[in-house]
Write a protein that binds this DNA or RNA. Structure first.
Lengths: 344, 344
DNA sequence: ATGAAAGCGCTAACAA
DNA sequence: TTGTTAGCGCTTTCAT
């Protein structure tokens, strides 16, 4: 096995307690002794066994991350935001992407109770009722990402879906469109709900009546965007513009439009949400809403680490909404936009 | 704290050893006693503390996964393959995506020595020299993914880059192209090297001389594809077809072609490698090589778990090449292809 | 400033 | 079949 504290103690001619103190900068150790121990530890390439450390100290230096299966497009970016910070602060990341058949709640609780993690970052845009319970039950610090927590009793970081949807809808309205259709996200998904709310409110504020026939449901996949478009455009009352609740559905819309020989934006304007890489490649480039995903991950773990270190009160609710930004392409009807480079 | 084995033992009126035995189905326990213990454990929602378990038993039920930063496009899929299997077999996944400033070797060794993981899946297409050392040093089972291990002394699963590149190059040759250019992947990356090798061999086999001027370097990014294309097409001797070593570079090629009013495939044919989602959306659809990424992850973890459980000899080298497949779009000049649906 | 010793929760000999 | 006990490698009182 690896060299352990006992061995270091032996070689340094001190007790294991002293080694522990020297290594943790904790308790008093004569400077000379400390140096010697550190020296020997380095020579032997000694690293304290984190498992043993966890058992005693109840610190695992591990963060649990639970992501839904829906985040495909963002998976990498979220992890990137989290992982980089974790690395800097010497933490490990334990990941669980909750596939369909998996019980997210169970995974979470297991994470929590197993003592494997010091805290959890949970992204669960589809869980509602159980969420409150979870928040109560959870013994360890937890940060919610884009989750539906109506009660204000947790720590959460959200993309400001409402604002983004509102802004982009007003942008469409600014173009003079009145019949604006929407392809919604999955039912029960709070990102989707908020985007719809922003859409509705923007119409209301501008005295445009919402027509039920112009609202079709989708599920954030390109496929559902494809069929959503067909449904919308096969009605007698066709929309002048379509707001797809995410870019992947907009991709489906483009494909359907191409099949139907309908031109974007001449025949119908299209906008999306998310600013995924692909949206830059569509012709015309998709007008969409940028969401700061890496930042979401970074903020989440930074705050979580503070909770863990008791630098903030983990029981104090705290929520932050990350602002979105409008990305203008040609799909909304704008002709004079400064297209940022298509390179990532 | 959570209820522990001692407490369960107390409530069941037995010793902790018996509880341990009953829970692990290990050693003999009277059926009645066992039932009672299990019953009480369930009532108290008792889960053995995995940390403590690890400390004693040296099984952590955790798999370490180390991915390079380059795999952006595949990140999700690889994890998906691994995570699903891990979940089924009750394992945890500890992830580390090695960002640029990070030392992949160090991360690996730390994973290994920390006792946090039972085994490691490593994807390191850029590491060469250190890899052999690592393989020697590593005390725990390790599976290599698409890594450059020339010595046949490890367990590895690789995409058959050579075969894919060879096939798609021959496909171009079949179209009658003779001046075929290539935009290469990053230097020192073995995926890139193998793809180049397949390309060269296909040309050689068909008695086509490789022209150095038609080989330009890239780094797997769209940007490098963009400039690679420009370099290739600004020469007096222009290629009739271009093989971009991955799809992202092909995306850059499309963009550059559009800017230059060069038509694909009329003016120049283009093919890629990877079959990323975006490749379906390009117009004309990109002809490319499909790589089974999810499967790569699945195979890796399945084999790793076998090594861990000693169902296979972890010291026995074992390598598997996963076959690729040709995906015909219109970019190579084919007109009569059965385009599979663009939906994922 | 340092050491001895008691755990952390569990598994695995060894005894009974 | 069951219990006792000795660790696993470490942190942390409590003495010294």
């Amino acid at each position: 096995m690896e060299v352990n504290i006992k061995e270091i103690a032996r070689r340094a001619g001190v007790s294991i307690a002293t080694v522990s103190r020297a290594l943790n900068n904790n308790g008093s150790v004569r400077e000379e002794t400390r140096r010697k121990i550190l020296q020997i530890a380095k020579e032997n390439n000694y690293k304290p066994n984190p498992i043993a450390r966890s058992l005693t100290g109840k610190k695992t230096n591990t963060i649990g991350v639970i992501l839904p299966e829906l985040v495909d497009e963002f998976f990498t970016d979220i992890i990137r935001g989290i992982d980089e910070e974790a690395y800097q602060t010497d933490h490990y990341v334990m990941i669980s992407s909750s596939h369909s058949q998996r019980n997210i709640v169970q995974t979470l609780l297991e994470f929590m109770s197993s003592g494997r993690v010091d805290g959890v970052i949970l992204m669960a845009p589809k869980i509602r009722k159980e969420l409150s319970e979870l928040i109560q039950k959870s013994k360890r610090p937890m940060v919610l990402l884009n989750s539906c927590n109506s009660n204000n009793n947790s720590v959460c970081f959200n993309i400001n879906n409402y604002q983004g949807a509102f802004t982009i809808t007003e942008h469409l309205i600014g173009h003079g469109y009145k019949n604006i259709g929407m392809i919604q996200g999955p039912e029960g998904n709070c990102d989707a709900d908020e985007r719809f709310r922003g859409f509705s409110d923007a119409l209301l504020k501008n005295n445009i009546t919402i027509q039920d026939s112009l609202i079709v449901s989708g599920d954030f996949t390109a496929k559902s965007g494809y069929y959503g478009f067909i449904r919308l455009m096969s009605q007698s009352q066709k929309p002048e513009a379509i707001f797809a609740a995410n870019d992947m559905m907009a991709v489906g819309v483009y494909e359907a439009a191409r099949s139907s020989n309908i031109n974007i934006p001449q025949d119908v304007a299209v906008v999306g949400f998310d600013n995924i890489y692909m949206s830059r490649l569509l012709t015309p480039r998709l007008t969409t809403v940028h969401v700061p995903i890496v930042e979401l991950g970074t903020k989440a773990i930074r705050y979580l680490l503070k909770m863990i270190k008791n630098e903030v009160d983990a029981n104090l609710p705290y929520c932050e909404e990350l602002s979105t930004g409008l990305v203008i392409g040609g799909s909304c009807g704008c002709t004079n936009f400064s297209a940022p480079t298509f390179f990532k």
